[in-house]
């Protein structure tokens, strides 16, 4: 580590830390260990667990496809979209808040898993249809 670096950047960062610190003291007023753990843990779990996980799955998919690399996106896109919906709506889809949701909103939470599966099926089905159509068109063009 050498020297200070850019004085302009230093000044911007120190001003920013003043605001972060002022709010941070208030954020941590409570179960501060757990709150700090959530704050930092969110970044750590994303960068060191979630991202390597989906990047690894993607790399595996591309490797597994071998010479048929052009086909990868017909699996990759529905996987990514369906996985994203699962990630965002996990509490409802998994049913872990079903009881509370029914009590609070007076509505059943049983349909979320089914609807997510339907959307997933539509995504993969749609992808398969587009794929089949493109392959068919390619064959006609070359044949």
């Amino acid at each position: 580590m050498r020297g200070l670096g850019s004085p302009f950047q230093l000044c911007v960062l120190l001003c920013s830390f003043a605001l972060c610190g002022y709010a941070g003291v208030r954020l941590l007023d409570g179960d501060w260990v757990l709150i700090a753990l959530w704050f930092v843990g969110a970044a750590v779990i994303h960068d060191l667990v979630l991202l390597p996980l989906y990047a690894g799955v993607d790399r595996g998919l591309v490797k597994g496809a071998g010479r048929r690399r052009a086909w990868v996106n017909y699996v990759r896109v529905p996987c990514a979209l369906s996985g994203l919906l699962l990630l965002v709506w996990f509490p409802l889809i998994s049913g872990r808040v079903s009881e509370r949701y029914a009590g609070v909103a007076g509505q059943s939470a049983d349909g979320f898993l089914g609807r997510w599966l339907v959307i997933t099926a539509v995504l993969f089905g749609g992808s398969a249809v587009v794929f089949a159509w493109r392959v068919g068109r390619g064959r006609r063009a070359s044949g």
Partner: peptide, 10 residues
Amino acid sequence: SLTHALERIS
């Protein structure tokens, strides 16, 4: 540098 360290904390 110090600034770089602070930037990474930021």
